[in-house]
Design a protein around this nucleic acid. Structure first.
Length: 581
RNA sequence: CGGGGCGUAGCUCAGUCUGGUAGAGCGCAGCGUUCGGGACGCUGAGGUCGCAGGUUCAAAUCCUGUCGCCCCGACCA
């Protein structure tokens, strides 16, 4: 049993708030001596921080094993050919990190893996030949590399991070052994993981994005440091990523066309703000005309001036995989005007009208003529509504499909599960023989968790003005013993004894044996956030007791030294149970 | 990639406008005092002022370029 003494450990705490850290988790992780930045989006986990990360890892591993997944380890170096096969060299662009060698050097043909669908699919292709081998789930906990354009918020968004990625292979979607079954098992395992880690998570419907696939959920942790938004219905029956959230159609509050079309001079006014201010109308009385390009053809989306086009919804409504904003040249050619004056009246292109626009009367929009807008525009009267759909992003005041009001929360994504289908097995020709001896594409699922994000999200969710208030399950140490005066033999000998007894009992305990004043030790203990602090000092010893302080609640228990192990063991057990989310 | 800010000691910063041989606090080392809420005194170590050019008798300071970091936006499997 090796002693865990502070003076032998490596804990560079700091009073100063690091200048580069903007969010609480980042500030606290640096101040508590958990991490140190190496470069943008790259961090060293110092011994204390790594202990915590390893505890997160252990929980993830445990739950994945319980879910029947098998651990393996894939390399970070991938042949670029595999990525070319799935079309993701282009799809991922600069996010895919490449090595640069001279000429046709192996480096030129190698990328650093940002995720492992290609590598795992190749394994499946090589070894899975028969439906009898299915289903199978494989996972790894491994470092990922991504060329993030803008790393930020400490370890919440980095270029290198620890991820658990799991992949499942199936012969069918439904029924025993099917994708749906494993997807649900993984979903449940994720809930267990985040619950055990003590972070407040919300599973939401998600967009599957460029990775492809047909169903997906994200696990979100509400925090101001996040970069996504989720929406929840007030009745609690619906939660989705804002990008994805479906909206109850707006009610038709009546009204009718009262004005004729009228062209107005709006020199140089190309934004909703400028035009609405100039014409003294509300943005919600304007029609925004956004022109996209799909396979060389223009696609026009109409939304209300105070709404934003949701490109994922638009693509779905248009029945295409993705839409891209049109180049200015195409816009000028189509509208016959400079960019900023497009409108639906007389526009000859496929047009998808947002549901909210269909209810508008006497609206203002671009005139397809430079420096002019038109007023008195009425959908249906002045332009035909051939296609109408929900193609906008939800805003405050919208309701969920069931009519319940939506509430918005800023959040960070800590996990994501996808039903991939055959996207990768098709492009990499990973087939098995079914029970008729016919080759079939493997049906796949993939499941990711950001371990560093769990750690940071836990701190975002659990801190106070004095420091971190770790969940017991992932605290670097469960207990710190503050030996208040190292010159007093009774204090040191009892502290050492308690340390040894607790260590023997399997408790993660650190003994603060520094020759420092009490306040100094207390501040450090609070900053680092040991869930339990045991204070051994002359004052208590005179009464034959030590103090046990619970970091979260601030509760103090005065107990005799021989009760400590049993008491602390019980506190840890209860915390592990009660802190579940 | 667009906009903004910043690079001076391990950390937080002053000094830059107005050029004149490098500063403070914290931390660190030594000695002494102190010891239940970030103590105090004395002594001390530590910086090619991000880097490269240029202007000048002289550059942390002015000019040009470049690299890096942070924030907002775009992007985000």
């Amino acid at each position: 049993m090796s002693a865990m003494n502070w003076t032998q450990y490596f804990i560079p705490t700091s009073k100063e708030i690091p200048a580069d850290a903007a969010v609480p988790s980042h500030q606290l992780m640096i101040r508590a001596g958990l991490i140190r930045q190496v470069g943008a989006g790259a961090y060293t986990y110092l011994p204390l921080g790594y202990r915590s990360l390893r505890k997160v890892e252990a929980i993830v591993r445990d739950e994945m094993n319980c879910a029947g997944a098998l651990e393996l380890l894939m390399p970070a170096l991938h042949p670029i050919e595999w990525w070319e096969k799935t079309g993701r060299v282009e799809a991922m662009g600069d996010v895919l990190l490449r090595l640069h060698g001279s000429g046709d050097d192996w480096r030129t043909r190698t990328v650093l893996g940002p995720t492992h669908e290609e590598v795992i699919t190749e394994i499946a292709k090589a070894y899975i030949n028969s439906y009898k081998q299915l289903p199978v789930s494989l996972y790894q906990i491994q470092t990922k590399f991504r060329g993030e354009a803008r790393p930020k918020s400490g370890v919440l968004r980095t270029r290198e991070f620890l991820m658990k990625d799991a992949y499942s292979f199936h012969a069918c979607k439904e029924g025993p052994g099917g994708l749906d079954e494993t997807y649900q098992k993984m979903y449940d395992a994720y809930c267990m993981i985040f619950s055990r880690a003590g972070i407040p998570y919300i599973p939401v419907e998600a967009d599957s994005g460029a990775i492809g696939g047909d169903a997906s959920h994200e696990f979100m942790v509400p925090t101001d440091a996040g970069e996504d938004y989720l929406v929840q219905s007030e009745d609690g029956t619906y939660a989705a990523n804002l990008e994805r959230a479906e909206i109850h159609p707006l009610e038709d509050v009546g009204g009718e066309a009262t004005k004729p079309l009228d062209e107005v001079h709006t020199p140089g006014m190309t934004t909703i703000d400028e035009v609405s201010t100039f014409l003294k109308c509300q943005p919600c009385g304007m029609i925004k005309t956004i022109i996209y390009e799909v396979e060389g053809e223009p696609l026009v989306a109409l939304v209300r001036g105070d709404h934003e086009v949701n490109e994922a919804k638009l693509a779905r409504a248009a029945g295409v995989t993705s839409v891209t904003a049109a180049e200015p040249d195409l816009i000028k050619k189509l509208t016959g005007a400079e960019v900023g004056f497009a409108g639906p009246v007389g526009l000859k292109a496929r047009m998808i009208v947002d549901q909210a626009v269909t209810l508008m009367h006497d609206a203002v929009t671009g005139a397809n003529k430079t420096d002019y807008h038109i007023t008195g525009v009425n959908p249906g009267r002045d332009f035909e509504i051939k296609e109408s759909a929900d193609v906008r992003t939800a805003v405050e005041g919208d309701r969920a499909a069931n009519g319940s009001p939506l509430v918005f929360k800023k959040c960070i994504e800590v996990g994501h599960v996808f039903k991939l289908g055959t996207k990768y097995s098709d492009s990499m020709e990973a087939k098995y023989l079914d029970n008729n001896g016919k080759p079939q594409s493997l049906i796949m699922g993939c499941y990711g968790i950001g371990l560093n994000r769990i750690m940071a999200a836990a701190i975002e969710a659990h801190h106070d003005e004095n420091g971190i208030t770790w969940p017991m399950a992932i605290a670097p140490f469960e207990v710190v013993i503050c030996a208040l005066d190292m010159r007093v033999d009774e204090v040191t000998s009892l502290s050492n004894k308690l340390h040894d007894e607790m260590t023997a009992a399997g408790i993660d305990v650190l003994l603060d044996d520094r020759d420092a004043r009490p306040g100094f030790k207390f501040k450090d203990a609070e900053l680092i956030g040991f869930p339990i602090r045991i204070t051994v000092g002359k004052r208590g010893l005179a009464d034959g007791i030590v103090e046990v302080l619970l970091r979260r609640s601030g509760e103090v228990h005065k107990i005799t030294p021989n009760e400590v192990v049993a008491f602390v063991t019980k506190q840890i057990e209860e915390a592990m149970k009660n802190e579940r989310t």
